[in-house]
Design a protein around this nucleic acid. Structure first.
Lengths: 362, 362
DNA sequence: CTGTTAGCGCGTTCAC
DNA sequence: GTGAACGCGCTAACAG
């Protein structure tokens, strides 16, 4: 028993396929009686339009693709959540494609999307926009979020990683820290490199000596980095981690070693993933409103798709910059309450900081 | 400048479209010279097959759909991660559709997938399988993960929520707890109801009085539930939360109130989301290997699709049951180390517990 | 207002 | 081995 097609419906309703199409799409006038007969037949046959076929003739798929390097951790899931929310309001489907570590895989993924999506959002922290453009199929609208340099002339959204890193370091310095170590992200990752560069610059500007420990954005690497530092007899009084996940790993390693945070070592992360406010001490970080950024990315993509359709409206090729906002929590607080368990002094301060960012804590 | 079609390639290579197709799909023999000419033309025109059109003639989309109620929190993102991993190994695309709170929305989402996917995985904790089946388009292979009763005759994977809840309560009782409260999930959610039922039954079996506090699976609801309990002068010595997210909220509320965990109140959650081992005290919970479950779901769906194609192989309509495993961490440990910060006594015990579950901690 | 017909881009029989 | 023709399911012109 195969699924009914539009012809089956037409036959049963004693009308032409065109009329069925008109009733279903809403376009074109149809007389009430025929309309009723069509709807009746549709119900009787449990007919559902074949969106694939429809796409072929309208050349619109009502689907957008999202290619991203990974799906692990809260960052990407939050991003996708924001995109999904926006997609729903536009009546679009979302097709995700992840785990593309290298350029070739990403290219293949992008190519395989042709004829399947109306546009795509590409996150590829390993590639620069130029390389990526080469592998793009046809003139499909694409919004880049590759964290590279502000690549002029190509629609994109990038996070100000450099500026965020500088702000994080300055915050630690303001809190009294002098020997600030940085746990960096994976080599080759543009976001990680920009954050490290910001750290190095801010340290130099303050006349402090930079110290970078390797990491790869994973929690275990943050944990390992701190253990290595401690084993070497580190005297650091602060740590700026390349992302929150590593910062959490660092926090745990400090706890295990009996090092107090923030009294002995202050810690600041990057991203403000949901966990950040749940760990103890709560994690100070550079907030990126992740879900909101995802929503914004999808909205812009929709505009690009419209621009392509209408020809009239110009495509918005701007490189939008998301500026992270410092969220000072307990892990970098100068005078944390003695007993964080029983007090919510910290929380009050956190709330004010956060509400300024238009977000609600806990 | 429009994208090239198979005809453009054929023209440039001086061959028929059929030959181009043969070269690209690999099916059918082609002489080497023509083969070269085709590949050359493909490269010259940067031709990429239109997967939408291909789908229409092969009636395979190489895409599977996942409809789920929400995308918030770590549970669903972990699940999707597992599915995405499996999808990649099968060369399939994943199209996600979320935020379907009620039956109608879910049905619409399911319907809109016809002609777009080869099969789908449906998570709909608000619907029973029977209702859902009604809204299914044609005979599309569907794997259910709706948490309902083991609905015979329909391929599905369900978590043994009832059994898990019983095990959680028994664990708390074994630890000395007698007045165990339960923070339940949203009404109408089948998973939540099964967990509550398990709790009630286990309490009754032990001759203890059950006490249920409302929650909705959100962290804030867990937080609010504990605050309410405390305000009423609760004497509970343990809390079994309907999921980890609420358990974390509960943990924070206890801390804020100066109530020690697990000394004064032990807490056990459900799911074992990644955060569970990051909070302090680390959260005891009923582990579901989420990503693995997602992978398994996709693998089974692939089998169903194959079975539909081959006619020969029978469809596996079994209702697979995932049994949660108790992971005892600090939040329910009878004799936690006095200073969790400086010691890793706890971690040792945790590790052993977890490794028995075939997983690695931290 | 309605029915007929021509594509959308591709895979795939069939004859050659 | 190769090419011409048909069909996948639907929308959109075009006649009637």
């Amino acid at each position: 028993m195969k699924a009914a097609t539009i012809r089956d419906v037409a036959a049963r309703a004693q009308v032409s396929v065109a009329s069925v199409s008109r009733v279903l799409t809403g376009a074109g006038a149809v007389t009430e009686p025929t309309r009723q007969r069509v709807l009746e037949a549709v119900a009787a046959l449990a007919y559902v339009p074949h969106s694939g076929a429809r796409s072929l003739s309208t050349s619109r798929t009502d689907t957008v693709g999202v290619v991203l390097p990974d799906l692990f951790g809260e960052f990407f899931s939050e991003l996708i959540r924001g995109m999904d929310l926006a997609a729903r309001t536009h009546g679009l489907h979302l097709i995700v494609s992840s785990s593309h570590d290298d350029a070739d895989e990403a290219s293949a993924a992008i190519r395989s999307m042709r004829g399947r999506v109306d546009g795509m959002i590409v996150l590829s922290p390993h590639l620069d926009a130029a390389n990526l453009a080469a592998s793009l199929a046809g003139s499909l609208p694409v919004l880049l979020m590759n964290g590279g340099a502000t690549d002029a002339g190509r629609p994109s959204i990038v996070v100000d990683n450099h500026g965020g890193a500088v702000a994080a370091v300055e915050h630690l310095i303001a809190g009294g820290a002098r020997d600030i170590a940085h746990i960096c992200g994976p080599t080759g990752n543009l976001e990680a490199e920009a954050r490290m560069a910001g750290y190095v610059q801010a340290m130099a500007a303050a006349g402090l000596k930079a110290r970078v420990v390797d990491g790869d954005f994973s929690q275990s690497s943050g944990h390992a980095a701190v253990r290595a530092m401690l084993a070497e007899g580190s005297h650091s009084d602060a740590i700026f981690a390349g992302n929150d996940v590593m910062a959490v790993g660092a926090l745990l390693a400090l706890q295990e070693a009996g090092v107090r945070c923030p009294e002995d070592v202050a810690v600041v992360g990057f991203d403000d993933v949901p966990i950040a406010q749940l760990v103890r001490p709560s994690l100070s970080t550079m907030r990126i409103n992740i879900a909101e950024t995802g929503r914004r990315a999808l909205d812009r993509l929709v505009d690009l798709i419209r621009a392509k359709d209408d020809e009239a409206l110009p495509a918005d090729v701007a490189c939008e910059i998301v500026r992270p906002v410092l969220v000072a929590r307990d892990s970098s607080r100068a005078n944390p309450s003695i007993n964080t368990q029983a007090s919510d002094d910290g929380r009050t301060a956190v709330k004010s900081t956060i509400s300024s960012g238009g977000h609600q804590d806990v």
